[in-house]
Computed example of a mutant assay.
Amino acid sequence: MAGSQQTLTSLLRQTHLAHRRALTSSGSPHPHTPVPTPVTYYRGGTSRALIFHPTDLPRTPSLRSTLLLQAIGAPDPYSRQLNGLGAGVSSLSKACLVSRSQNDPDADVDYTFIGLGIEKPEVDYAGNCGNMSAAIGPYAWEQGLLPSTAYKEEGQVTVRIRQTNTGTLIHAHFPVARGQPVVDASTRIDGVSGLGTPVRLDFLQPGGAKTGRLLPTGRAVDELLGLRASIVDAANPCVFVRAQDIGIRSTAPPGDIMSQPGVMARLEALRTAGAVAMGLVKEGAQVPRVVPKIALIGPRAEQIVLGGAVVRAGDVDLVREEGGRRPLWLRHL
Rank of each mutant, 00 (worst) to 15 (best):
Q156E: 14
F174P: 10
I136T: 04
D108H: 07
R188G: 00
L12K: 13
P105D: 02
D256P: 04
V98Y: 10
D108L: 12
A275D: 03
G212D: 01
P147S: 03
N128R: 05
G262F: 07
S259I: 15
E268I: 03
V232H: 13
E302Q: 13
T37G: 05
Q244C: 12
L224E: 12
L215T: 11
D184Y: 01
D56N: 02
E302W: 11
K94T: 14
D245V: 02
K120C: 01
N236T: 15
S90D: 12
A301S: 07
G44W: 01
D190V: 09
V291T: 11
E154V: 05
A313N: 03
A172P: 01
P29W: 14
V287P: 03
I231Q: 08
R320G: 00
Y78S: 06
P138C: 09
G196T: 08
V263R: 05
M258Q: 08
G127A: 10
A87T: 12
D233R: 14
P261S: 13
D233F: 00
G274V: 01
D106E: 03
Y111R: 05
A313Y: 13
V182P: 08
V287E: 06
V281M: 08
K293A: 11
T33Q: 14
E122W: 06
G44D: 11
A150D: 05
A71C: 11
